[in-house]
Design a protein around this nucleic acid. Structure first.
Length: 424
RNA sequence: GGAGAGGUGGCAGAGCGGUCGAAUGCGGCGGUCUUGAAAACCGCUUUACUCGCAAGGGUAACGGGGGUUCGAAUCCCUCCCUCUCCGCCA
């Protein structure tokens, strides 16, 4: 959620930035301004009345003590009128605050100036591409066929146990998952991240704070009896570790990493492009999260990208880096890079990481601040990125590394898997 | 799930209807003293919103929400959480 004070003091800039999302920024911001004006006027009015009331109450106390009962009684009568007025104003203020809040919730984050304008994924900018595209023979198979052939991935068993989109891994396939998770975690820890194992369910406050509610309500599994949501990403519980915190500047940077399964309903997306592991309801992911001073956040974003590139290089996967255009960016992000790996049998790029700077969009909802040098406390910047999402990495590894002898495991991963080849 | 106790500032811990944003101690910051440090002493030490160029002012906050009252950290209701005991259980 954007700060109303930012919208008030940097109206022009906000409008320019927001326009990149192909939305009617002017109308949204005009409404925000009007609602904010109402809120402030109401508050000023209320505060003034309350000040009067406080003064009167103190006077009554004094009068009572000095035994001037009559004067106290008449003062009391006055307060009753005032009280009615303040009650009305309080209701109005609550309504005004809610109206402003509800409206601000509908405004997406303002894209950074470097974000290209654009409407569709076609307008994303390819920043770089690296790694040799493997040439597979004509009998190359997509990962879901390989998974069956080798007996390591069973989409049908998932259907039996749960439903479509819940993969079951077994044998070397299961070990490969575990190896990747351990590998990604170790690399992040090496890079200075502290590992967390967070809850896999969160309450509504947490889901709101990182931006999943109300924007993506339908995308989360909801345990309605207890009012909890299955996490769609570790970003939610890990970022919320710092909800309602006021940090010393010296506490930053905060670098966290966590592995969790991720649950996504993915309502409405079916078809050829979602076969196998391409899009599933449950997948494993290692997520890195940063809490930073505003002036550092964009340098940190690049640093996180470099970390992910390092992982992809080590896994010997061809990859490319995309800078998302305004129209394709997530609701909460100010700037997002997507990392995609080439899946050789499907002949397509698969998104395996999304790295974003949220600036103060999340921290405003989180109420996550940093103490300033002067008296001013500022909202921190939050960032996060997948490092990495497993299911599609597994898909690409299987497809790209298929050989007549079996599926080759990248060298760096072999100490984790304990084998160099997946075989029948 | 049942019974009981409790939730106050960074921490510990008073307050139990009026001048309490809140005693006191610890911690932290600044100062005096000292060659330096410690000790001692003095002062300061929450946050949000809002008005103001600023200095500074106003309002709110004692787990969350609601109520009683001219006035609530203090009384009442409700929800949440923590602790103890019992039950259940990986």
């Amino acid at each position: 959620m954007l700060e109303s004070i930012y919208l008030r003091e940097h109206r022009e800039e906000a409008e320019q930035r927001l326009t990149k999302r192909n939305i009617d920024a002017k109308a949204l911001l005009d409404t925000a301004r009007d609602l904010d004006d109402v809120r402030r006027n109401t508050q000023q009015d209320l505060d003034a009345r309350l000040a009067e009331l406080n003064l009167l109450s103190r006077t009554i106390g004094d009068l009572m003590k000095s035994g001037k009962k009559d004067e106290a009684e008449s003062a009391r009568a006055t307060t009753i009128e005032l009280k009615g007025r303040t009650a009305t104003l309080k209701d109005q203020l609550d309504a005004a605050e809610k109206a402003l809040q509800d409206h601000l919730c509908t405004i997406p984050n303002a894209p950074h100036s470097k974000v290209p304008a654009g409407r569709t994924p076609e307008e994303n900018v390819t920043v770089m591409q690296e790694g040799a595209i493997p040439e597979l023979g004509p009998d190359a198979k997509p990962h879901w066929e390989l998974g069956e052939d080798y007996g390591i991935l069973h989409m049908d068993l998932g259907v039996k146990v749960t439903g479509a989109g819940f993969p079951v891994y077994s044998g070397q396939g299961a070990k490969l998952q575990r190896a990747l998770i351990a590998f990604f975690l170790d690399k992040a820890i090496e890079a200075g991240y502290r590992e967390y194992i967070p809850p896999h369910m969160v309450n509504a406050e947490s889901a709101f704070a990182t931006g999943q509610l109300p924007d993506k309500e339908g995308q989360m599994y909801h345990a309605t009896v207890d009012g909890l949501y299955l996490i769609p990403t570790a970003e939610v519980p890990i970022t919320n570790l710092y909800r309602n915190d006021l940090l010393e500047a010296s506490a930053l940077p905060i670098k966290m990493v966590g592995y969790t399964p991720c649950f996504r309903r993915e309502a409405g997306s079916y078809g050829a492009h979602v076969r196998g592991l391409n899009r599933v309801h449950q997948f494993d992911k290692v997520e890195i999260v940063r809490i930073e001073k505003p002036e550092n956040s964009y340098a940190v974003l690049e640093e996180m990208v470099e970390h992910v590139k390092g992982l992809l290089r080590t896994l010997e996967l061809p990859f490319r880096q995309l800078l998302l255009c305004g129209g394709d960016m997530g609701f909460s992000s100010a700037m997002t890079y997507d990392m995609e790996v080439w899946s050789a049998a499907q002949q397509r790029w698969l998104e395996v990481s999304s790295i974003s700077n949220f600036e103060t969009f999340q921290s405003n909802r989180l109420k996550l601040r940093v103490k300033g040098d002067d008296k001013k406390n500022r909202l921190a910047h939050t960032l996060n990125g997948s490092a990495l999402a497993l299911a599609r990495i597994v898909a690409a590894l299987m497809e790209n590394n298929q050989t007549p002898e079996g599926i080759r495991i990248p060298k760096a991963l072999q100490p984790y898997t304990g084998f160099a080849m997946i075989q029948k």
